[in-house]
C-alpha cells in the first residue's frame, strides 16, 4: 500500500484555494495513553486541524522544550513502542480521513530500519515524516525509502539557514517545508519570531512547496499572524499544554478540541 503524500498535498491545496492557511496539529503518541492519544488527535481534527503530526516519543528529545519533554516522558514511561505510534497514525487517519505525518528523531527510525519504518507508516495510511535531526546531507537513504512508499519527507529550515542551504533542502524535500519561526526548541512563546516572515519569503524564493511555520504558536491571534504570510500554521506544545493542564483526560481531550477550533478561526483571518 502506498502512503498518503497526495492527501497531504491536497489538504494544503484546499486551504490555499480557500484563501487561508492550513492548521497542522502535533501530539506525541502514547500521551497520555495510546488510546487517549488517538482520541485526542482525532478530536483535534474534528475541532479544525487539517493535518496531524504524530510524535514518536524519544528518550532524548534535544529539540523539544519542557512541555513536549514531559509528554514524551509520560508516553515512554507508559511503555509506548514504535508499533503503537504506527497504530496511532493509522487510527487517527482512519477516524478522520486527514493526512497524518510522523515526527520524530532519526535514531528510532534508523534503528527500526528506514525501509521497514517507511513501509509500516505507509501501510497504516501515513502521509510522511519529519525528522528534524536528519540533515539533508544524511537523508538519501531515508528519502529513497519514503519515495518508494509514497511518503513525504518534510525538512525543517531555520532563520539561520542561508539561501544556498534553503535551495538544497527544499530541492530534497516533499509535501511541505517546515519553517522554524525562531531559533530555539519547541514550546509556547509570547510572540511569533520576527524572523519567521523573512524565512518564509526566502524559502518561497527557492521552492513551490507550501511553507508551514511552527515553533511557538499557541493561540488564535498568533495563528492569524502567521497565516498572513505562510501556507500553514503548526501548533504542538500548546495542545500538549492544554492537556497537561486539564484536571482529567476527558477534559484534556475537550480542551484540545477547543484549541483546534480557536486556531482554526485564526488561520481563516488572513
Amino acid at each position: 500500500m502506498s502512503g498518503n503524500i497526495q492527501l497531504l498535498t491536497k489538504a494544503l491545496a484546499t486551504a490555499r484555494a480557500e484563501n487561508r492557511a492550513a492548521l497542522v496539529g502535533y501530539l506525541p503518541a502514547g500521551f497520555p495513553t495510546v488510546a487517549d492519544g488517538i482520541a485526542a488527535a482525532t478530536a483535534m481534527v474534528e475541532g479544525g486541524c487539517d493535518i496531524v503530526e504524530i510524535g514518536l516519543p524519544h528518550s532524548d528529545p534535544v529539540l523539544d522544550g519542557p512541555v513536549i519533554q514531559t509528554a514524551d516522558d509520560i508516553a515512554l514511561r507508559g511503555g509506548v513502542k514504535i508499533v503503537d505510534v504506527i497504530r496511532t497514525v493509522g487510527e487517527v487517519h482512519e477516524a478522520t480521513g486527514a493526512p497524518v505525518l510522523c515526527m520524530t528523531y532519526w535514531n528510532p527510525v534508523d534503528r527500526h530500519g528506514a525501509e521497514r519504518f517507511a513501509e509500516e507508516l505507509a501501510a497504516a495510511g501515513g502521509a510522511g515524516c519529519i525528522l528534524p535531526d536528519l540533515p539533508v546531507e544524511e537523508s538519501a537513504g531515508w528519502r529513497a525509502a519514503a519515495e518508494r512508499h509514497g511518503l513525504a519527507t518534510v525538512f525543517v529550515v531555520a532563520p539561520s539557514s542561508r539561501d544556498e542551504r534553503l535551495a538544497k533542502i527544499t530541492a530534497a524535500g516533499s509535501g511541505f517545508v517546515y519553517a522554524a519561526s525562531l531559533m530555539g526548541v519547541t514550546g509556547t512563546r509570547e510572540s511569533v519570531g520576527a524572523q519567521a516572515a523573512d524565512l518564509v519569503s526566502r524559502t518561497r524564493a527557492c521552492t513551490d512547496l507550501p511553507v508551514c511555520v511552527g515553533l511557538g504558536v499557541s493561540n488564535a491571534e498568533q495563528a492569524a499572524e502567521v497565516a498572513g504570510f505562510a501556507d500553514g500554521v503548526i501548533v504542538g506544545s500548546a495542545f500538549v499544554k492544554r492537556m497537561l493542564d486539564a484536571p482529567d483526560t476527558p477534559s484534556g481531550i475537550a480542551a484540545a478540541r477547543e484549541l483546534a477550533a480557536e486556531l482554526a478561526t485564526g488561520v481563516r483571518k488572513r
Binding site: 534535544v62 529539540l63 532519526w106 528534524p132 535531526d133 536528519l134 540533515p135 546531507e137 544524511e138 525538512f155 525543517v156 529550515v157 531555520a158 532563520p159 539561520s160 539557514s161 542561508r162 542551504r165 533542502i169 522554524a180 531559533m183 530555539g184
Partner: peptide, 9 residues
Amino acid sequence: KFIPEALVA
C-alpha cells in the same frame, strides 16, 4: 553530523 538545521551554520 546529525544535527538540526538551526545548528548547521
